[in-house]
Each structure stands twice: as structure tokens, then as C-alpha cells.
Nucleic acid binder design. Structure first.
Lengths: 219, 219, 219, 219
DNA sequence: AATGAATGAGACTTCATTCAT
DNA sequence: AATGAATGAAGTCTCATTCAT
């Protein structure tokens, strides 16, 4: 099991042990997480400006004013959600890289880790796709985009060095793989097909052939 | 000359599509076209909900109330822009398919037509990417996504039949190509690299190898 | 007639000639002035924080949103009202100082100019009293308080020089006169008596004796 | 020892009034007194509507909800503070009137009692000035203004009868004295000068001359 | 007795749309 | 055909108050 660094303060990603140390009316355990979760859903579906505070409150099952007990502003809320989703994706990718293995095997692990992520956290995936930019993202939240793709980049670099991958600029290889993956998920979400194991496998083959040296073994 | 079907009433597309011809018609489009053009810019940059009517009016250089001379509502305006952008893309693709040619050549034509489009109409491309869904799109506007990719689909189908392309589901091949292309443009827009001819060429190679039968010639 | 400088942009203090040069739905002539007037009333009665935008809108007979067509914010509105009221008071004082006249006569003119002001513009007077400080006043609006009392200060200085007034610090004399005047107006507003000519005259006598050299003639 | 009537249940006034005595009672008042004290500060600085319950709670060092252990509402709180401040002023004035003494001496005592009050309880003084009116004051709290000036009125009446003071309406004399005093304190608070003994003495002279029969001795 | 989370009304402000000119 | 003032609903956020602990 990988040690997932970088979760930082995104408490809702962890199973929370409530220490109940303060006096006063106690926090209903899941409230904040519930809010962030509802926000993830709505922001992913309608975007930041398309989601109102009353919408969020209704989805979270709280009064509108109560939201401000958990976050200071709507902007802070998106940023919190953004970083949470990003951490989730980063964790999925990190978990998938067994340090030593044939490159084709690494690629396979990575690919299916991504598919797992897209399947188990479809909202987080959709959210990240929709919110790269936007004035409401703060400096920390921005400048992520492809940085989270570092594990992929790492694998690609290794492959280029060893001659297994095409001697093209790394960026060209990465955008192809990442683009194919995103395209697949989007098409599935749009209803063009179901993202089943077969489809995942098919596109894995195309993605690998895209970047592998022509003569390399495909599977 | 390509027959640009489907433009319907979206005159300003015709102006743009035909603009290289310089016939008698004034190049400076009418007020309505100017509005649609300004709307394309703002919607692409900020999204539908992030763009206000006063913003649009200011960008178009008209009074807010005047917008309602041209469209009945803000929603109708996005839909109009949406269909315009989609028609632009469709036109670019249609123009690119020389009915008879080796498949690799057709793919090449298609690929560079897309690059031309992304370069010459970056706002339209960004807009389409950002507005697939959204409650504000009417029934006609939605359900486009990949339909406009019909020319690509057509080429792919031909290729599968002839054995030049992998015997995978057409959807798997299409999403890979389209995904790689979109990934490349997005990465360029995000500043990770410049979409120059070299990069276009590199990614073309990966995309082709992704879908071609393993032994096929690459270029 | 004195040239009243300092009215600056406070249009509502002047009789307005409407030049009606712009197109579009015309401004209903008195609207902005009407708003400032209603704001003067409410702010004087309830203070800044005690007056809401809906209150102001109702008092001015417009919709709440319409207020923002005339001022950029509630804060700008108070400041506008503040400067208007101050200009009114300044004008009243300036108008009252006949450059050459026996000091007692000057005092008399000044005193009754103030009474005229308090009677004809009771809201402006009450407003100024209530709004010296306040975070909502901008730098320009603050730093007025006694500056507008410059004409009084001028007269007092003259009197001290000539021996007609007591050889006390000017500030001591001024605060007594101004304080007596304000006390009188406040008491009248509170209903303790009516500010008629008799009362005005009585307090004038006390105020003069307060500052005049003991042996000076009283009237 | 002065008999401080009217303090009723406002225990914290007694603490302050008696504080110079240092008997067994703890100088640090209870929670409720602390709250009323904090409220006096904030209300004096920002007014009723400009002060929020969270502000008050923070200033008093208690939780927002705890305030409602001590008062039933924010309105009751101002009224409580109002009556407390008024009682403080009343006590200062009562303490200052030695039943038998030459009128000039009585005036002197009164005047310096007021100055003591303004110096030692500047917040109470500022508060009273700012809160005469206001919908939030209940019937009992309102209609005070000059009633608390009864001791002054008493002295003035005596003086009119004996011919030492001007034969003008008592109200005319009172507002002058009170107005001069308030004007002096306000000017000092605004920073125009320091309210030192000299200034207090100077303005005392003007105030006395204002109301004394012209030939009367000044000091 | 005290806490502070929760509430919902209401604050200021913006916006899509209408309308008089 | 075009303008921009006017509107009122809705948006974000704060606040007085309640309530579970």
C-alpha cells in the first residue's frame, strides 16, 4: 500500500475519527464532508457559476447560511473541492506505479488505475475536466493540470530512454495517452458506449501502440 | 469548393468560411454577426453562466437592450453560437475528405484540417469543448459531440474494412484519435508547448499508429 | 450674492437644466435628486446602518435595483449625501458673512443664518450631526467637522484681536457658540420647546455674552 | 455619601460608581457586567445597527449564544446599557450639588463634575450622545435627554429667582450650558484640542457668562 | 451556565429582461 | 433599429436567534 502524501488538509478523503473535544453543540459528523461531496456533484454537473449557494445547500441538506460555517466563501468551496479531487486522482496514479516492472506492465497498471478512478469517482473526474482554469481557482489550485500526470510522465521518460517508446518529445506521447483516455471516458459519459472492460482493453491497445516503438510487442 | 451544408441561417459562418474570397460583400459583418462573434469569445473564455448580458453588450459594442433585437434570450444566444461553432467544425472536416485517396492520406488530410481549425478558430474550438452539456442547450444543440465526427467515423470504417486499421470497435479507434487531438490542443492552450508543425506531426504519428494495424506503414 | 464654491458635482443642489442629449429611455428628471433626498431623510432619522437599500428604494419610490443606476454602492450614497449636506451648510455660513460690519452685527448675521439653515434644512442638519465619523465616510468626506466652521472661526479671531471678545483660546469660544447652537436645535427637535424667533433671540444673547468681553454691549 | 437613586438592578454601575472604595467585593465584575461593558464600548463606537452580536460576543469574550443568558435580545441589551449610562450621568450630577452654596460655586461644582464624568467615562458619554433616539430604545429609555439635566435645571431656576442669572426662559439658559459642555467634549474627542484643566476652565468662564446677569462677578 | 453549530430572514448587489423614447 | 433606465428575481453572504449538548 502506497503512502498517499499530499492529501494535506482534505479531511474528507480520510476516514475520520471524531475526537469530540470541543464543547457546544457538536458537529454532526459528516456535515462538512457531505457538503464537499454535494458540491463535487453539482460543480461537476453545472460548473461553478451554474451552481448557486441555495442549490448547494439543498443538495447537502442544510440551510444556505450554514454553508458558511464550513467554508468562508463559495470560491473557497470550489478550491477545496478541486484540491480534493486532484488529490484523489494523484493518489490513484501513485498507487499504480510499481517501481520495477517491464514498461508495458507499468503502462497497463497505470491505464487500469485510471479506469478504476474514472469508474469509482466519475464526479471527481468530470469535475477536474471542467475546472482547469477559471478565475475562481486560487494560485495553489491552478498550475496542476498536467503536474498530476507526473507518474505518467515518469513512465514515458523511462520508456523513451530504453527505446521501447517512440523517440518523440515526451509531451507528444503524454498528450496522446492522456487524450485517448479522457476521450474514452467522455464518450462513455456522453452515452456513446459503456466503459466496460472490453472497451477499456481496446483503447489500451490503441494507446500503447500510439507511443510504442513500431516493432514493440503490443500485449 | 466544398458544399457547406447545414449552415442554415447562420450567416456569419458563411462570411467566415468564405472570407478568403473577397467578393462584393463587406467583410465587416453586420451587427448581429458582431454580437455572435463577441459571444463566442466570452462564452469560450468564461462559460455560459460566467458571462453576463452586460458583458456581452460591452464586448459587442452595443447597448444591453439591443441584444434582444437579435436574439430572444441569452439561452437562444448560446445555442446560436453553439450551432455556429459546430457548423464551422463540420465544415472544416467535410472540406478535408478527398473522396478517393489512400487511407493514410485521408487521415493526414483530416488531421491537418483539424489543426488548421484549432489554429484559425481557437475560440470556436474552446467553446465546443466547454459546452457539450448544459441545461441551456436545447435538444437540437445537444447530441452533437461525436456526430460531427462523422467524417472521421467514415474514414475509420473504411479502414477497418480494408484491414489497414485495427479490427477493434470503431468507437475505440475514434475516441483515441479525437482524444489525442483534443489533448494536444488543450495542452498547447494550457501553455505546455506550442502547437507548431513539428508537434502536429509528432502527434499525428502517434495517433496513426494507435489505430493502424501493427504492421502498417507509419508515414 | 456669494459665489458658492464647493458645490462641485452635487447637482441636486442646483436647479437643473435638463439638456436631454442622450438617446434611450430618458431619465425621469428628478430621479437622482429624489433618491438623494430620500436618503438624506432616512439616514438622518435612522443612521447609515439602520437604513437598508429596500428602505431607501421605497422612500424614493423606485425599485431596489434601480438605486444602482445612480450610485455605485450604499457607501457612495452616504458620502454623496454627506457632501451635499455639508455644502449646504457651508453655503449658508458663507452667505452670512458681510465682510465689513461691527463684530456684534456679524455675529448676529451668522447666528440667524444658522437658524435659517436649521429651520429650512432640518434633515441636513440632523444628518450632519449624526454622521461625523463612521467607517463608511471616505477620506474626503471626513476631516470636515469643524472645517466648515471656518467662517465662525474667522469672526472669532477678528474679535479676539480687537478686544471685543474674551482673550481665551479661539477654540474655547467657538465650541461654546457652536455647542450652544447645536444644543438649542437638538432640544427643539426633541420637543422641549419650539425654535421660534424668541428662543433664537434668547440663546443668541447667551451665546454672545459667553464670548464677549465682560463690559461689552449685549445687543 | 451620595444616594445613588435609580440604579435599580444595574449592578455594574454600582461597581463602577463605588469602585474607588475598594471594599471586599471583587473589582473584576461578573460575566454579565463584562458583557454590558463591552456593549457600551462597541455601541458607543459603532452605533446600534453597526454592532453585531458576534462582535459583542467577541469583545466580551463569550460565545454568541451565551449573550442570551443575560439579555433577551439585542434591543434589550442597548436599553440596559442606555439606562446604565444614563444612571451614571445622573449619579455624577447628583453627587455634585451641595445643597447650600453660592450659585457660582454650585455652577462650578456641577461643571467639574461633568468634566470628571466625561473624562472617566468617555464611552458612556459618547454612547448617550449617539443614542438619544432610535427605534430600538423602549419608552422608558427615551424621554430622558434633558430630564437627567434636572440638577442643572434646579440650579438655574434658583439663579433666575435670585437675579444672578439672566431673566430668560430656563430652557434657553440650560441648552446653552449643556450645549457648550457637549461641544467642548466633542471637539476634544475629535482631536481639535485636549480637554485639560485649562480648557475646562476657559469654557467654564464662557458658559457662566452666557447665563449670568451681565454685571455678575465672573469668577 | 455556557458553547457554537444551525437556521432562515434579510442585507447588499447583479442580472436578464422590458419598455419608453 | 437602437438606446439605456427601470425592474424584480435571484445571487452571495451576514446576522439575530435557537437549540442540542
Amino acid at each position: 500500500m502506497v503512502d498517499v502524501q499530499g492529501l494535506g488538509a482534505y479531511s474528507y478523503l480520510r476516514v475520520i475519527v471524531h475526537s469530540q473535544k470541543k464543547r457546544g453543540r457538536p458537529v454532526i459528523p459528516g456535515r462538512r464532508d457531505h457538503l464537499l461531496d454535494a458540491a463535487l456533484t453539482l460543480f461537476a454537473e453545472r460548473g461553478f457559476h451554474g451552481t448557486s449557494i441555495p442549490d448547494l445547500a439543498a443538495a447537502a441538506g442544510v440551510a444556505a447560511g450554514s454553508i458558511y460555517r464550513h467554508v468562508a466563501s463559495k470560491e473557497q468551496l470550489v478550491n477545496e473541492v478541486y484540491r480534493g479531487a486532484k488529490a484523489l486522482l494523484a493518489a490513484a496514479l501513485l498507487r499504480a506505479v510499481p517501481a520495477t516492472a517491464p514498461l508495458r506492465e507499468q503502462f497497463h497498471q497505470l491505464w487500469w488505475a485510471l479506469i478504476d478512478f474514472a469508474r469509482s469517482e466519475p464526479r471527481a473526474f468530470a469535475f477536474l475536466e471542467l475546472h482547469h482554469h477559471g478565475d475562481y481557482l486560487d494560485a495553489e489550485s491552478r498550475a496542476v493540470e498536467l503536474r498530476v500526470l507526473a507518474p505518467i510522465a515518469q513512465v514515458v521518460e523511462r520508456g523513451r530512454g530504453s527505446g521501447v517508446l517512440k523517440p518523440l518529445p515526451a509531451a507528444a506521447l503524454i498528450v496522446t495517452v492522456w487524450g485517448a483516455f479522457v476521450g474514452m471516458v467522455r464518450a462513455a459519459r456522453a452515452g456513446y458506449f459503456t466503459l466496460d472492460d472490453d472497451m477499456g482493453h481496446h483503447v489500451e491497445l490503441t494507446a500503447w501502440d500510439a507511443i510504442a516503438t513500431s516493432g514493440s510487442p503490443t500485449a
